[in-house]
Each structure stands twice: as C-alpha cells, then as structure tokens.
Amino acid sequence: MEVFFEQPIFGVTLTILAYYLSGLLKRRFDYILFNRILVSVVIIIIVLLVLNIDFKQYNIGGKYISFFLGPSVVALGVFLYEKLQELKQDLKPFIISVILGGLTGMLSVLGILYLWNSPEILAKSLIAKSVTTPIAIEITKITEGLPEITAGIVIITGILGNAIGAPFLRKLGITSPLAIGTALGTSAHGIGTARAFEISTSSGVYSGLAMCFNGLVTALLAPYILQWLLT
C-alpha cells in the first residue's frame, strides 16, 4: 500500500481533485475569505494525514503539477506585454510607486524580523512575500530560504490584501481606483488583483501589471538586499 501512493498518478489526481472540490465548495459558500488555493491545500493535507502518507510520497506526483510554475512565469511576461499598452501616460507614476512600494515591503519585513531576533531562514523565506507565488518560490530558492514557507505566507498575504486592502486605503484617503489597483497588485499579487477587478476592469489591469512588475523588481533586488543586510 505504501508503494501504491508513490505512483505519480496519486499526487497528480489528488491535487486536481482537491482543486475541483474547492470550486464546488466555493459555489456553495462564497465568502471573501474563501480562497480556492487555501481550501485545496487543506483538503490535501487532511487526506495525507488520514491516510498517513508523507509529503514526500505525495510530492512524487505533486512535482508534475508544480513543474508548470516555470512556464507560467514565462507566460506572465506575455501578459505584461499584452496589458502594458493600457498604461500609456501613467507609466512614470506606475513605475515609481511599484518600485518604492515593493522595496518598502521587503525592507519592512526584514526590519521587523530583525528586531524580533528571528532566525535568518525566516528573513530569507519571507522577503518575497508580496510577490506572485511562482516568482516568490524561485526567489526563495535563490536566497536559500524554505520555498514551502514562502508559498504559504504569500497566499496568506494575498488573502489579507484582498480582504482589507481596499477599505484600508479608502479610510486613509486613497480613493482613485487606479491607485488602489496598483497598491493591491504590488502588495497582494494575484489574490489582491482579483479584488481590484471587482472595483473596475482598469483597476484590475493596473493591479495585474503591478503584480508582474513587482515580481521582476523583487527578483532583481531581493538577493542583493539580503546579501547586504545579512553580512
């Protein structure tokens, strides 16, 4: 029985089944905080714990699924090109705010962890927390953190931004849908972008662009920031 679960088809099917079930559940319980990835992950973890299967055994099949993260990141470059035309004259404020916002996000995470005397491995795993998951995982591999922790925290960051981002910004006087979109994409990646699309299409497009662009900025800067701060 042990060996049976080590066939790749087990992990592959379980992953797709869990995602399918999360879609059925979402139709019945549609809350803001209902997140299909989170629900899928919880379903799989419960199945593995009940059947007493190691993550390693599951991941023999899981790897076939996560392989597609690589080509998906390349596909984000296509998305960036396609939507960039919609920015036009807003390019300059867009670039300035995403770079400075993204940089502040990285430095503030590191600052708090440093003040708390947390182990270095946490700083290395959390520096990319605002970036879309596939890019964040790659950044963490380069910074030698734990990609699994990154993936979990990135999803939680996204849900946080999705749930409270827009009302938080409005309360502080940021009301322009384009500004809210840019902020959501920079700080809460794709999950924040889903919220921006509910505000307006252009808010969503700006959010998606901010997500891609901040992914690039973080990928370029994170290894150097860590090297500079940790030595």
């Binding site: 503030s108 500004a179 840019t182």
Partner: peptide, 23 residues
C-alpha cells in the same frame, strides 16, 4: 508572532505607500 506582525505591518505599509505615491 513575529511572522504575523511582519506580514501584517509590511503588507499595510506597502499598500499605503504604493497607493499614496501613485495617487
């Protein structure tokens, strides 16, 4: 605890600064 504080504080700061600069 430090993870939650870092994630919440830095996400809100990043949101606010990006939105403020853009606006």
């Amino acid at each position: 605890i430090p993870i939650s504080v870092a994630v919440i504080f830095s996400t809100l700061l990043c949101l606010y600064l990006t939105g403020l600069l853009f606006q």
